[in-house]
Design a protein around this nucleic acid. Structure first.
Length: 528
RNA sequence: GGCGACGUGGCCAAGUGGCUAAGGCGAAGGAUUGCAAAUCCUUUAUUCGUCGGUUCGAAUCCGACCGUCGCCUCCA
């Protein structure tokens, strides 16, 4: 089988490469295979919403590439040994490994709630000590690294390409003072291996007991799983320097080959003026005052950001995923309660349409059998106007995704489809009494199936929404109670007692329950 | 100080040289409704931080300025 056929021959995808600062045609090294690595968390504290930007966009990128016929291996690392973890361990008086296990569980639970389920490998640094040590040994052997009193440093002057990714010169590196600086040959050199201090977690190595420096775990693990050169490396803009610059230096020098073909960086999340979390910098000493006073800034753990699990409970994971995908991945996303709530309001229109669709067609939107491959989804629109509109929407949607994964534009196209479909339902006067086998309904199902195909590329609307902020048994109880009130109201209205009927509706409305009267009966939804 | 990003209607947000500047939220009017909600239709930026420049033509390219933000490395 020719490789090109397997990936639908899709030369149309373009990717913004941080290294070249341009959009480049996406041409993977070994089609249809694609290797993609995303820098995951250092698991020393609960995740906050800002940590989800990368996972959600790269999860979506994998979905789209898979849809286009590629076979993607998606790796997200877990850094579970680091100074912050050690500090936390001392602070809490429990082993570092326990903190790592707890926080990894938190991270993974959050990913699941946001529908991030495309990851193939989640390698942990502490499970790859052999590879890390071998990697450092190889760099030392080749003359790129040097050992001093149990520490090993990377010599940045030995890497001709150092600084290309983040556009910095070696000379401009200031470096900090402190103990390690005296051992370094150049201020910009960075640690590959750090000698152990008493009481710290450590591993045996040729340079004595110690632990890996930051950066090396990503070089070692990406090499282990994806090879010397792979297609996509992603991460937040804040990781471009020093983390990715140093990873790139280590890997290219060790293997004498490019590490990555496409470097992709997502924008950072910022708390808006009304946001409660934010601050100037991770490095700044966190104080209660800055948590309270900071009007804006990059969302960070040190400023008290966290509690994503709670946010998901009140907002739902899908709402957060939609909120993140609404903005282009390279832009700054401004977070505050209002913008997140607005995203939720927007989603309601989709959910209402899905309800409407189910009543008319006797089918669940979520159960529709939609094409999973772009080539399978291609169709001839023919002469029917609804199908033509949907075909145009599909074309626009795919063009947006082809252009550097423009999910915000793709979502706006989905809104257009909503209008087309609702207009069609109104014009055809379709309702719960319509015959599901009638041509008008069959046409609706066909058009809606295209929307399911596209939405699933974004990882949206893959399963029925869960009511925000409630557990299941409470939701069932509420549903029963509201249905009872709907019945009483119906009886009142049948005897023209509108005062009672309206009182029931208004008081439910005040409680956040909206009633929707239709020809076939009344349904309800949370309006909050 | 060095490097970089951004500034589009009340709010969020696409658009990077050329049809009438997407879409969402909000708001206003209409159709529908017992009244609402939902849905549909219409309206809501002669204008894209400011000032210049290039061009037949710029939100889009160039320069300056104003403003916002990020990075400038672990053991501080």
């Amino acid at each position: 089988m020719p490789a090109d056929a397997a990936c639908d021959s899709r030369p149309s995808i373009r990717v913004y490469n941080t290294l070249s600062k341009t959009k480049e045609p996406f041409l993977p090294l070994r089609p249809p295979r694609v290797g993609m690595y995303l820098c995951g968390p250092t698991v020393y504290a609960e995740s906050h919403i800002g940590h989800m930007v990368g996972p959600v966009i790269f999860d979506t990128i994998k979905r789209f590439l898979t849809y286009c016929g590629y076979d993607v291996t998606f790796v997200v690392n877990i850094t579970d040994v680091d100074d912050k973890l050690i500090n936390k361990s001392v602070e809490r008086g429990i082993p570092m490994s326990q903190i790592a296990v707890e926080m990894t569980a938190d991270y993974l639970a959050n990913l699941k709630e946001l529908g991030v389920n495309q990851i193939n490998h989640l390698p942990r640094a502490t499970d790859h000590m052999d590879q890390i040590i071998a990697f450092i040994g190889s760099l030392e052997e080749k003359g790129f690294a040097y050992a001093v009193e149990g520490d090993v440093f990377f010599d940045v002057t030995k890497d001709a390409g150092y600084g290309q990714l983040s556009n910095r010169s070696v000379d401009a590196q200031q470096g900090e003072g402190g103990g390690a600086a005296a051992k370094k040959r150049n201020p910009g050199d960075f640690a590959l291996w750090k000698s152990a201090r008493s009481g710290e977690p450590s591993w045996e190595s040729p340079w004595g007991d110690g632990r890996p420096g930051w950066h090396i775990e990503c070089s070692a693990m990406s090499h282990e799983i994806l090879g010397e050169t792979f297609d996509i490396h992603g991460g937040g803009l804040d990781l471009m320097f020093p983390h990715h610059e140093n990873e790139r230096a280590q890997s290219t020098c060790c293997h004498d080959a490019p590490m990555v073909k496409y470097w992709m960086h997502n924008g950072l999340m910022r708390a808006g003026e009304k946001g409660k979390i934010g601050g100037k910098s991770d490095r700044e000493e966190p104080t209660p005052e800055t948590v309270e006073d900071a009007a804006s800034g990059k969302i960070s753990r040190s400023k008290g950001a966290g509690g994503l699990a709670e946010l998901i409970r009140t907002q739902t994971g899908e709402r957060i995923r939609f909120f993140l995908l609404r903005t282009h991945y390279r832009s700054t996303i401004i977070y505050n309660d209002e913008t997140l709530a607005e995203a939720g309001t927007s989603l309601e229109a989709f959910y209402r349409f899905f309800d409407r669709f189910a009543e008319i067609s006797d089918q669940s939107f979520y159960a529709l059998e939609a094409p999973r491959r772009r080539s399978e989804g291609d169709f001839d629109p023919g002469q029917d106007s609804l199908i033509q509109e949907i075909h145009t929407i599909r074309t626009k949607f795919l063009a947006a995704m082809d252009d550097d994964f423009n999910t915000g534009l793709a979502i706006s196209v989905l809104f257009d489809s909503l209008r087309s479909l609702n207009r069609y339902i109104d014009a055809e006067k379709l309702n719960a009494t319509s015959d599901p086998a009638s041509p008008a309904v069959v046409r609706l199902v066909r058009a809606t199936t295209v929307i399911a195909e596209l939405a699933r590329v974004l990882g949206l609307f893959v399963r029925p929404p869960i009511a925000a902020g409630g557990d299941e048994s409470a939701s069932e109880l509420l549903d029963g109670v509201v249905r009872l009130l709907i019945e009483l109201r119906k009886e009142a209205r049948e005897r023209k007692d509108y005062a009672t009927g309206d009182a029931i509706r208004d008081r439910l409305s005040a409680l956040g329950v909206a009633l929707l009267d239709k020809k076939e009966g009344t349904s309800w939804e949370r309006s909050s």
